[in-house]
Amino acid sequence: MATLRKRNGRWQVQVRRQGFPVQSHSFLSKADANEWARTIERQQDRHELGPNRKALKSMTLAALVVRYRDEVVPKKKGSAVETILLNRFLRYPICQRTLYELTTADFAAYRDQRLSEPKHRSDRPVAPKSLKRELSPLSHMFRHAVVEWEIPVRNPLDGLKLKVTDNKRERRLHAGELERLLAATKKGKNKLVAPIILFALETAMRRGEMLSVQLRHIDFERSSVVIPESKSGYSRVIPLTARAVAILEALRPEDAKPTDLAFPITPVALRLQWDRLTNRAGIDDLNFHDLRHEGISRLFELGLTVPEVASISGHRTLAQLMRYSHANHEAVRAKLIGERHPQTLIV
């Protein structure tokens, strides 16, 4: 920020910005002083002037991550999960490097290390797509540091190569899997897991949307629930089936307050419960988000149109919606057989 003052008939200007050395000059006219200050600030914005090496040498990557975690992440929707990711990242040696010496090569080494590590509960290595999601908060952190905190650090992730194959999941519940999941919930201590699973299938709602629903958002008379703000940033009203309403009514306490949660469980707790549940049920490669796939596909199989399904699922484009809609192949095959003409066509 530029500071001007007139002294001994001359205008003295000083530009101070965190991470850059202090710049000062004196001019006969105030206009010249202002123009010089704007020039220096533009050069700093474009990083044409070298950063203050002393400032960058005194700050480690760990210090930047901690500040971002404590000041910025709590204001974000996915704060709980993002905090876990950042806390895990802080355990790696790369965090001990200073911002001045940090390079893309450091993150390339970190990338290779993470991709060779086995995932929790599996011998498979971490997938590139999963690692990309882990690096996303760090990339935003560097941009935030430059814009909001005026720390002139270069984003070392800009040049990092990470080949990601967009393998669209088509995982739906196989025959008997829902029954096995529900049976396994009876052996667990948390009694909310089974109702949440059934509610997810009935509404095709996202996990975060379900866990943020308060009783004041539910209209039991009209069988609907309001999502004040979804992942896309828009609100929507979801019609509820009789089974979905019954689930909510069964969980509603007699002395409930309007601001009470319909499903009082945290996202992290539900994720841990899901991992234990699928292990107990002996089901592999089934994510909780696959229940949304299953729910949307069932809506199509009931005969709902694309606009009707989109109004429930919250998707804004057809391309987004079709990623989640996977018809039951047995049902499609049965329709094709039923539509087939009984007589042989002669060409």
Rank of each mutant, 00 (worst) to 15 (best):
L345E: 10
G303E: 13
D285Q: 12
R124Y: 07
G9A: 12
L99F: 03
R114I: 10
A194C: 07
E221M: 06
R133V: 01
V66I: 05
K161S: 13
G314C: 11
V146Y: 13
T305D: 08
G314A: 05
V332I: 11
P228V: 05
Y92W: 03
V81F: 10
V213A: 07
W36M: 08
W36V: 07
S79Q: 12
S212Y: 13
F89R: 01
A244T: 00
K161Q: 09
Q113C: 01
S297D: 07
Q320E: 13
T305V: 07
M59D: 11
Q18K: 14
Q96H: 05
D158M: 04
F89I: 03
E148V: 11
S235G: 11
T241H: 11
P267S: 14
A204S: 13
L102D: 09
A55C: 02
P342M: 12
H293F: 01
I296P: 00
L90E: 12
N190K: 12
L85Q: 14
L102K: 06
P307G: 11
R69L: 15
W11Q: 02
S29W: 06
D158S: 12
A281M: 10
E117S: 09
L182Q: 09
V306Y: 00
S223N: 14
D70R: 13
R169I: 01
P267C: 14
I247V: 09
E177F: 10
E339D: 10
R276N: 15
R280K: 03
E221K: 11
R222K: 15
A183K: 08
H140V: 00
V65H: 04
K186W: 02
H47W: 04
E221C: 01
A250N: 12
S232F: 01
I40W: 01
G50R: 08
T165H: 06
G159K: 12
F300T: 00
H341T: 03
M210E: 09
K161N: 09
L261R: 11
L49Q: 10
E179I: 09
V72K: 15
E294D: 07
A194D: 10
A327E: 10
S311P: 00
L302T: 15
I94A: 14
S79R: 06
R206F: 03
A331I: 03
Q214V: 02
A145D: 03
K257A: 09
R53Y: 09
G176Y: 05
E330S: 10
P74R: 01
K75D: 15
L304D: 03
L270M: 07
E177L: 06
H217C: 03
F27G: 14
L299D: 03
A127D: 05
V15S: 02
N34W: 00
N52D: 15
Q96K: 11
E134F: 01
R154D: 12
T165I: 03
L178W: 11
L286H: 05
L162V: 05
A55V: 03
R5V: 05
G159F: 08
L102I: 04
R280P: 08
I283V: 12
E202F: 08
K77L: 14
E308P: 00
P258G: 00
I283R: 09
E254M: 05
K54Q: 10
F220S: 13
V126I: 15
R207D: 08
V66R: 12
A2C: 11
K6V: 10
